[in-house]
Design a protein around this nucleic acid. Sequence first.
DNA 1: CGGTGTCATGACATCGGTGTCATAACGGAT
DNA 2: ATCCGTTATGACACCGATGTCATGACACCG
Lengths: 344, 344
Amino acid sequence: MATIYDVAKQAGVSPKTVSRVINGDAPVGTKTRDAVEAAIRELDYRPSRAARTMRSSRSGLIGLITGAISRGDGSAGPSGLPDLFIVQAIQRVVAEAGLTLMIADTGGEADRASELVATFAQHRVEGLVYVADHHQRIDDLDPRGAPLVLANCFDAAGTPAVLPDDRAGQRALVERVIAAGHRRIGYLTLPAGMVATELRSQGYREALEAAGIAFDPELEIEGFADRGEGPKPFLTSALDQLLALEDRPSVICCGNDELALRLYGELRERGIRVPQEISVAGYDDYRVISETLYPPLTTADLNYRGIGEAAARRLLSLIAGAPAPTEVELVGGPVCWRQSVTEH
Amino acid sequence: MATIYDVAKQAGVSPKTVSRVINGDAPVGTKTRDAVEAAIRELDYRPSRAARTMRSSRSGLIGLITGAISRGDGSAGPSGLPDLFIVQAIQRVVAEAGLTLMIADTGGEADRASELVATFAQHRVEGLVYVADHHQRIDDLDPRGAPLVLANCFDAAGTPAVLPDDRAGQRALVERVIAAGHRRIGYLTLPAGMVATELRSQGYREALEAAGIAFDPELEIEGFADRGEGPKPFLTSALDQLLALEDRPSVICCGNDELALRLYGELRERGIRVPQEISVAGYDDYRVISETLYPPLTTADLNYRGIGEAAARRLLSLIAGAPAPTEVELVGGPVCWRQSVTEH
DNA sequence: CGGTGTCATGACATCGGTGTCATAACGGAT
DNA sequence: ATCCGTTATGACACCGATGTCATGACACCG
């Protein structure tokens, strides 16, 4: 790879002058500039980031750690993948800011995270993002001085974090369902104990309350067991319970789109048509499911991209010297109204 | 951030001795070593990669370019998201080799790729991988001297490439379906013209031929139109054609799992039960679909992870000086036999 | 006891840029 | 003609590692 000295020699000037042409620091004579630019093109010269980094101690790098902390064994909550949307969004924002993204993965072992931070520290990254695969609390992570932002997770230390607004999202969806004329609203939740489960349930209840509908505990059932014991029979019995109710729900909201997909299967198995006989709603707007199902699924957009964008922007502003926020940032998404819930 | 000089001063030795302790180049006295290690811990010292890179011209970086990352509009290609599994697998292999992965994406504009190559060149990456979102041919890309491997795509220049073995995969699946007792096998293909479409069709015909079953052109229909004109009615009429045949197929193979998901809906809409009245098979083993559907979908594992792994290993061996292979590397996956195809 | 080899360590130069300061050339004001 | 202020350029040091070579302290051998 050509160096600045090669270019200088080729153009018959000093290396410093080449540097000036590249960076536009100081005025350079027109003829000199042309000669230098020609030499750069001829040699296909690219300035070495490493050398620049040494001199300026600005590496132009952002480190990203994705953490399938609880995923390794497969017992995790939602279906993996979507967190990659967050990574995509972060990549885009970082690139727009002229920085380059380095990524690493804990491969499921939580304690590897600090190892990865060390690697990033060697590269003198200017900032770090930690992306979790689902809304969760994580152990504190020492970023060794670099600004750190958490995406889709939070910690006890109050590190700046960007989270999905599960409560508001579920509330908006249920309110919209109520506006469509529904009163008896079943809710099949994700596994109890997960952060998203609790917040969405809260949103569900708030929507009911705001509409003056009493919360009926019989309508809210855990519908998604760990993969270990097989979710199918679990869902079957949950559905049995809902359908056996005297005052049957006219719509069933699901903890996420995957659960809604299973529910479609269950209902069709029993000859119950969606949405004519019962309406179904999901959560996440996982498009491969929500747009592909027939009828297309009404759901709430979890907005992974928005989370990634917000996290990246927050990180950039921290790097620029902004003070760390004291509160987490909540990112919401719109209700995606399709054809799986009847209107009126 | 502490430097090697800080450590040297703290330990009362020369910087070179600290370097020796870190790299184990040359023997160092026990007492000296202890002092240096203590100083390193105390100062939380991490050697600067930038400085090392300058000295050794080895950056420890691998560049990854993908068009997959920000398809901003969400209008995915045919296969959707799973190509990101390739990225994950590459990340893992690269990390195991002690290298760090930098990623960038074209944001959908193919000509941005060379810009990204330039950025990577500045970082003096030791190798490059280009990952496509679906099996396709791409324009030649000038890697400016760095070894380059293509994953899920190939070019005219014969750049080393790792591709899914669509032909063998489809053939194995159809052979297994035949072994299960089926003779009339419908095939709803992906859009004509795509590489995967042609290869899978070839595999389908090979399996028929191997079993001595004549290929019936009426059984192979394009089932997946571009999103623009809406795939639903397209699939509907394709299905109409298949069901109207005098000798109706006992099983329908689909171009991918997403199409199979739509087909489930179509069939149930018509009151045709899967697999009792007609069997269905997919392709890709896109688990969110294949494992979640009821009945679980029989499909062929496209093995994105395997592709990523193979591409990363190939790149590492190129970096180590191995000669570039003259043939593309095909990666296959097993048939995933579940309950959507009847046995006997 | 002097010579030789090994071990342990340090001085110095170097990788490829850029900040600092010096200097040469030139036009205009006095 | 002299002085001054730009403008254009180069010399040199430095960022933080490490390769090369030199040096001092021993141990071992004859």
